[in-house]
Design a protein around this nucleic acid. Structure first.
Lengths: 404, 404
DNA sequence: GAACCCGATGAATCCTCGC
DNA sequence: TGCGAGGATTCATCGGGTT
């Protein structure tokens, strides 16, 4: 049997998976639906002194049964080098784990991935839920895995890490030295293996990427999973594809895909997204939180000795000073490379209107086309609102100016 | 029955807990021993097509039974306002969760806490394990909880947070505006509620706090848990107290404690620690990770487009290139403001000797007193070691030079 | 085969040395 | 004697090799 790839199938995956050849899939990702009705049944149950596992499972059995049947079939579809990633509802992760241990075997459990994100807070008593669990099992020990390396920790003595080590006669670890007694260097290192805790921004409620599916996942999450355990032209299957994120990510990464869903709407939506994929264009999404911190280094350096709160994700403002001025916040904006001074000023002015700010600082970083225009040099006083924008230059710009 | 507090009990907690009065404990923390023998039993088990839940559990049942008996008793010991925190082994978290759901009821599940950390890596194919799970259940809905707030994330729209919000007639959340229609500023906010993902440094192998217990937890972790769900003079119980971290943390926070352990050594050790508690106080602990990042911003900026590993805490080196040269690392140093070129060169040269590096780059950022000296302009070749230092200038410096 | 040993690992602390 | 820079050391966890 040959499998037609790059298609979306409408129906229960239990049936539809029969259209896929055994041992043909490289990665299965699923976020199975979770039926919350069961939960309430538990409420009034009697606690018994004599413990039986059946008690736990009876409550969950219909769900576990549902999942078990399907995951059994999924295992057959996987190549020997294939992997499965199962996204868990927080009320059911023990059930999912139990089923996976049964079908794949606990020795093929690779990782519990924690997808961590910051989120808008709620008023709930307790801790703010800010993670989800993804279980990663491989079919065999010979699974495809593309190693990813991350930077060393800031607290690491990196120069020492690069020294070769050995053990002395007491089996104590020491640095290796050559005949002259100088330290031997280790081979080139690439960094630290990727951790099982992933800090990936939660899909912002207003993101363009969002298509209205409650459990929609960020593309970045799926892209990372796909990059980790598949290669180009491999086949990715999502048996509960929903809004189609997995398929879109696979398609963007030049992998083949098959998506299955019971809902006609889901299939239609997925197809639309596949025809014209939209990925949220935010610095945070693309480069991660670290890059976000560095993106504005220049701006922050200018402010090095002033007490300020950095502001991200706002075109008009890069920082708000801690000190207020006449009871209103003082805003700071750094001119971006692509902005003319005019544009930058207007953005800051808008922001100041919204924030009712009376004082703003605009930090120039770019030479103007017409260096002699009045606008380029003067601070701006807005007649209506009595607010003022001071224009400041970076040191570097003032040097370049003398050459202009 | 009255309970004697601030004591350590030797024995199986199943028996010893009988010495504690029912409904007298405010917090139970436990890190139950985990018997890894199970793992191997699972290995050769046949997967059966007809699915039975008993199959999953039979393997685990002796362990689950062990845990269930004890946790049942623990629930009785808890006050109605009390909570339990259970630390899980990564191979057993589904078992623990199942038992807790059974004893406490899933509606009293409050959080799965992810304790996240950085740690030395290993050769594992796959993701680097860097978290542990802690389950948090309350006995009733009326549990003690002290809200904790953390600083806002870098990606938060801080400017929006500072705007006062209200609801319109359709009960939709909107920004509050004054008579003139401009936005009202909110009062100072406390921050974001504490997340269920905790970044707490792992107990370092060299830490003096370490006492030799393999599963010893950092005091910081227990301190946070205790602060979260207990008040002064409350009673904290650890039925598997091991090295006694829980009791020490409770004692330091002016809570009462009871620790139980089967091992005489553990009890003795715990008592020693209680008499003279040691807590790690380091730069990382005190100033946090951020302190490292900001120390060196300027140097890192100069290296923007080169593949390098940043080096902290070493005067002679700011970075090591990823690529090696003639089998030796290539070192990079950025001249600091207070350093003359001579001094900078010497520091780099020393570092190169120690690291046996053949090639180094020194990035000039300062104009020399005597701009015309030969030393200022020339690269340095060391006759003895055949190593060479290339001197490079920043763009900014070369502009300033033309004015010098 | 199974049990054991051994080397590699990197985070982060302790510790020493020099001024 | 105090302090800071940076060198030294440890540990749990893998894989792989060897009894």
């Amino acid at each position: 049997m040959t499998t037609t790839t790059n298609q979306l199938l409408l129906g229960d995956c239990l049936q539809k998976m029969n259209e896929i050849a055994d041992s043909s899939v490289d990665l299965i990702y699923l976020d199975p639906p979770f039926f919350t009705e069961r939960k309430h049944k538990l409420k009034n149950r009697q606690r018994t002194k004599e413990f039986s596992f059946d008690d736990i499972w009876k409550q969950e059995s219909s769900y576990a049964e549902f999942l078990h049947q399907r995951i059994l079939k999924m295992r057959d579809l996987l190549k020997d080098t294939g992997s499965i990633f199962v996204h868990c509802d927080k009320m059911a992760n023990h059930i999912v784990r139990g089923v996976l241990d049964d079908v794949f075997g606990s020795e093929y459990f690779q990782s519990e991935i924690i997808w961590q994100y910051k989120r808008w807070s709620n008023a709930k008593k307790g801790l703010l839920p800010s993670h989800q669990n993804i279980y990663f099992y491989s079919k065999t020990h010979d699974f495809t895995f593309n190693k990813v390396f991350m930077p060393y920790s800031e607290a690491t003595n990196l120069d020492q890490i690069l020294q070769r080590r050995t053990r002395d006669k007491h089996n104590k670890s020491i640095y290796a030295r050559d005949e002259q007694g100088s330290i031997k260097q280790a081979d080139a290192k690439q960094g630290v293996p990727l951790s099982d805790v992933w800090d990936i921004p939660y899909l912002n409620p207003k993101a363009r990427e969002r298509v209205g599916y409650p459990t929609q996942k960020p593309l970045l999450l799926l892209e990372r999973i796909i990059a980790l355990v598949t290669n180009q032209n491999d086949l990715v299957l999502d048996p509960f594809c929903g809004s189609g994120t997995t398929c879109v990510a696979a398609s963007l990464a030049n992998r083949n895909y098959i998506g299955i869903d019971q809902s006609e709407d889901a299939i239609e939506l997925s197809q639309t997204r596949l025809d014209k994929p939209v990925k949220t264009q935010s610095t945070l999404m693309q480069k991660g939180r670290k890059a976000f911190e560095q993106a504005n280094i220049q701006a922050l350096q200018c402010l090095a000795n002033i007490a300020y709160n950095p502001v991200h994700r706002n075109q008009g403002i890069d920082a708000i000073l801690v000190e207020h001025h006449h009871g209103a916040p003082v805003l700071v904006k750094v001119q971006k490379e692509a902005e003319t001074l005019q544009q930058a000023k207007q953005l800051l002015r808008n922001a100041m209107n919204v924030k009712a700010s009376k004082m703003g600082f605009l930090i120039r970083t770019q030479l103007a086309q017409d260096e002699h225009s009045a606008e380029a040099k003067q601070d701006t006083q807005d007649q209506d609102t009595a607010s003022i924008i001071y224009v400041i230059e970076t040191v570097e710009l003032s040097i370049r100016r003398r050459y202009a």
